[in-house]
Write a protein that binds this DNA or RNA. Structure first.
Length: 250
DNA sequence: TGCTCGATTACCT
DNA sequence: GGTAATCGAGCAA
């Protein structure tokens, strides 16, 4: 299966991000292969980007971001789900592209079972024979194909990506996690004429105005835009101008 | 050592 | 449309 080469990722994340749209990300696990065509991504620019996990420097958690390009940085968020990034630029820069949403193009049945199994509990044994089926089993009764990988947490669940894949090399032949051009899966060339839109990133409070989110226009697999929700409502001054929710729906 | 809050999601009203 | 769930990194004391 042809993969994107490492030099593809050896560029600023703002250049890599739009080029990833239309590419296919897959995870070949013991349970089977699930692949998604990427329709929404966000660029994070490391040390110069206050919203980036790498902004405050190297830690054990984000170490992969400071490594060589073409590796996956996986982190656990909100205690409930994982998010996956692809590292860009030369080592030490801390740049990465967050994979936000995709369309499942292979292994939809397996992806659906994982998504239906409940949050974070996925993986190997989904057989009802096991005794501990209590965790969220049976929820998501009518899960739409559109929603299988619509959102960063959902995408990771559909592909069964967790911290065990942190640092995985997506460029290495034979690796369980990979990414290639759409043609690798016999899909029509993505370069045909997909309209790419840009806008503010989702759910961040720092540098929220930077238009570093990229998505394919008019694609139903793109996640909903949400601006950052402040935790503590604070009393406002008199003047009322708080209409800065960059509402840019596709 | 303890506390706050996040690159979110699913469920309830 | 609002919010509970859930855990760990990062910061304050």
């Amino acid at each position: 299966m042809p993969r994107l080469r490492r030099e593809f990722f050896d560029r600023p994340s703002t250049e890599v991000a739009p080029d990833l749209l239309g590419c296919v990300l897959w995870h070949d696990s013991p349970a089977g292969l699930v692949a998604t065509r990427l329709v929404e991504v966000e660029a994070y620019r490391g040390g110069i980007d206050p919203a980036s996990h790498a902004f405050r420097g190297l830690t054990a958690r984000n170490a992969v971001m400071f490594g060589p390009p073409g590796h996956a940085y996986v982190y656990f968020s909100y205690g409930t789900h994982y998010c996956v990034n692809l590292v860009c630029e030369a080592p030490g820069r801390g740049e990465a592209v967050l994979i936000r949403a995709g369309a499942v193009v292979h292994g939809a049945g397996l992806a659906r079972r994982r998504r239906s199994a409940g949050p974070t509990r996925t993986d190997t044994d989904i057989s009802p024979a096991g005794g501990h089926a209590a965790v969220g089993a049976g929820r998501n009764g009518r899960l739409r194909d559109l929603d299988l990988a619509r959102g960063p947490g959902r995408l990771c669940q559909a592909l069964d990506i967790d911290r065990s894949l942190d640092g995985a090399d997506v460029c290495a032949p034979g690796g369980p996690l990979g990414i290639g051009p759409a043609t690798a899966f016999g899909l029509p060339e993505a370069g045909g004429a997909p309209v790419i839109r840009t806008g503010p990133r989702v759910g961040i409070s720092q540098a929220a105005e930077l238009p570093w989110r990229y998505w394919i226009a008019d694609d139903g697999h793109v996640s909903m835009y949400r601006s950052s929700k402040p935790r503590q409502p604070r009393p406002k001054p008199v003047s009322g101008r708080d209409d800065q929710d960059g509402t840019m729906h596709g």
